[in-house]
Design a binder for these strands. Sequence first.
DNA 1: AATGAATGAGGGTTCATTCAT
DNA 2: AATGAATGAACCCTCATTCAT
Lengths: 227, 227, 227, 227
Amino acid sequence: MSPIPLRQRRKEARPQELLDAALALFVEKGFVATRSEEVAARAGVSKGTLYLYYPSKEELLKAVIRQQLSSQIAAGALEVERYVGPTSTLLVEVLSRWWQGVFDSPASGVFKLVITEVRGFPEIADFYVQEVIEPGERVIGSIVQRGIDRGEFRKLDVPTVVHSLVLPMVMLCLHKHSIGACAQHKHDIDPHRFIRDHIELMLHGMQTSPTAAEAPRPAAKAKATAK
Amino acid sequence: MSPIPLRQRRKEARPQELLDAALALFVEKGFVATRSEEVAARAGVSKGTLYLYYPSKEELLKAVIRQQLSSQIAAGALEVERYVGPTSTLLVEVLSRWWQGVFDSPASGVFKLVITEVRGFPEIADFYVQEVIEPGERVIGSIVQRGIDRGEFRKLDVPTVVHSLVLPMVMLCLHKHSIGACAQHKHDIDPHRFIRDHIELMLHGMQTSPTAAEAPRPAAKAKATAK
Amino acid sequence: MSPIPLRQRRKEARPQELLDAALALFVEKGFVATRSEEVAARAGVSKGTLYLYYPSKEELLKAVIRQQLSSQIAAGALEVERYVGPTSTLLVEVLSRWWQGVFDSPASGVFKLVITEVRGFPEIADFYVQEVIEPGERVIGSIVQRGIDRGEFRKLDVPTVVHSLVLPMVMLCLHKHSIGACAQHKHDIDPHRFIRDHIELMLHGMQTSPTAAEAPRPAAKAKATAK
Amino acid sequence: MSPIPLRQRRKEARPQELLDAALALFVEKGFVATRSEEVAARAGVSKGTLYLYYPSKEELLKAVIRQQLSSQIAAGALEVERYVGPTSTLLVEVLSRWWQGVFDSPASGVFKLVITEVRGFPEIADFYVQEVIEPGERVIGSIVQRGIDRGEFRKLDVPTVVHSLVLPMVMLCLHKHSIGACAQHKHDIDPHRFIRDHIELMLHGMQTSPTAAEAPRPAAKAKATAK
DNA sequence: AATGAATGAGGGTTCATTCAT
DNA sequence: AATGAATGAACCCTCATTCAT
């Protein structure tokens, strides 16, 4: 049934395996502190082999980031256009979906990687801005705009709202891979719960009429402050 | 006229000069990528001198972080107790003051430093959490709680609100020292303006009464909590 | 024709080549004063390669000593058991053979190395005592004892005799690698001749019967020992 | 009563205090591994002061050795000329006296120092040979020669006998400061007892008539092998 | 004379990268 | 293609020596 011999399958899988290994290690230990041999070892190949696929550790770093970003651009944009229904629901929907896909996956590490390494490789900034920040802000921004246009949201400064919405999410990803990864401080926050609450809180702040804010979750009931 | 000999005066200044140099460089290039000689040079001394004051690069890092943190704890707590007046004003006041003191100063770099280096030196996590996160959250949390107690804010989950308020601020510090430091992306956001807007937006989300710009809202009822 | 590739052949030879180089240099210049790069160079490899085989200069030192010692233990013991004939001949035989094997070989340097470096690395003392001193004294001691038992030697304190016999030999090895290695003082003594004479002199002192050049002597009585 | 102020006395004592400190440390840790600051500290002065008395660590080493040697030349020679009585007694007398003065004093360390450091500073060899080896061998040699001339000793090769006599003594000094200084191996030999026995054994080997050998110590009795 | 802060050459060790196998 | 031995530049840190005080 599988016409492709194992050897060849491995060979084709190599680049991805190397990228995965590199992502994990770069995020964990930092780019400089990660030895290229470790990356190779984690990918199950030898030091030399790594250099067959990537000409240098630096290129490997860029490839890691590029690849993670490409997969992020994705989705969403279309959804917005087609969607009918309350904007708050749409916003919750889009942010949640993205959050689900990112936070628990290794992809959450790219944020740390970018923050940590851009200064050393400013090219990274360019494609990060182009591939993630801008498209991301455009999508979220367009939703917010839709809410404003439809009178659901107050007339707010769109970029501000977008940042207020998104920065905590990014920050949680960073936390996960830094302090959150240190034994004692693992469970200080429940990220999924926080994000849910955060969005809700934001919606409150954005909405014209308080009632509208509740729309997305009909079955919900009072919960307020319970810690 | 000057009874203290130059040598000695220098000696006392050295540790701080070295810490300043180290902070700047560690934030800019990362701990591992910074050569100890660079730190020394930036502090205007030679390689060897650095080791007269700090026994190793690693200890220097810890000293850098410790010192920045110690100076952060400070402030605010008292203010909260004494304050009379609307909680929203208090919150704006406290956050703004802190923001002023941090964002434009080199201290803003510690966030990046911590995020970047904790994994390598987990002890850092401990004192960061103790010296910054916990006291910080306690102060902001107490303000939020005050607002709730006084019926000015809705009955929200305090930690959630604190995070929603603060994480974007921290994130902006990180941004400043990473992407924001790359030529092309310098002025994507005006941080001070954003923080002002962000807080305002948050307050909207938090407040009970629509007075400020919202429709009247009865005791908050349905809450979109179901996960 | 040669199925083993050159690389691999080298690899197997490396440790020994490095040990040889290290022995020579450590003996000549002392452990601390020898740069690891020199060792590598003398072994025909680069600095880095040394660390492929030994994790540190210190481990290299220990390996050098260990290896020399292991090869020393060896020999003699059996010979003693089997031997028939006068003990004096046996003693001469065993000491000469050992002397031949040691003095002119690089192994003679280990004595200096041990004397010089034990204080810095006391573990060395343990294995030197176990691998060299004790076995060596045991072998020579057993010969002396045999002589006493067979009435060929006077009833002397065995360890004393062993030391009197052996210490000058060790001392000559030390001399060879210290003062003896300094141009002006090269030929102050002919070591082989000296050792021959020394053993002969010692035998005179040990023997019961005056055969060689001594008057008959009854069971030794008066002893010039009182301190 | 003491007209010399303390300050000045200290000042005059400095060089000697520094030499003592240096001897102890150089013997213990080796010349290269001893930091000049340690020497200063042990002598109770600061780093800088050391350089007021000796222009470099190397000169300090040479001074240490020179001074120790100068004090060794000393004595004995005259004694030999004047002495009347059996040569064996004279020999025992001279060797014992020297041994007493050397072994238990810090001077015993110079042997190690010379052995260890000559290769690095060959000038040391010259004055060591001139100041110690040659005078020493001359004194002992003249005694041995006297014994031969007077028919007390067999017609042996004088240098050989001298070496056989003296090398174990030197070797014991070396041992004391190397293996003997390592906890486990402190009491393997009783040096004073050994030297006494060794000389006695040597005398046995040297003497024409066995009876003569016993002369020096009339009151002694059988002791032989008892360990 | 004495101090000890400062210097900077020097040496141990690491690791990205190459290349013979 | 894959390996891993070898290289050597680079970096942390030490310490002899200097010199302002």
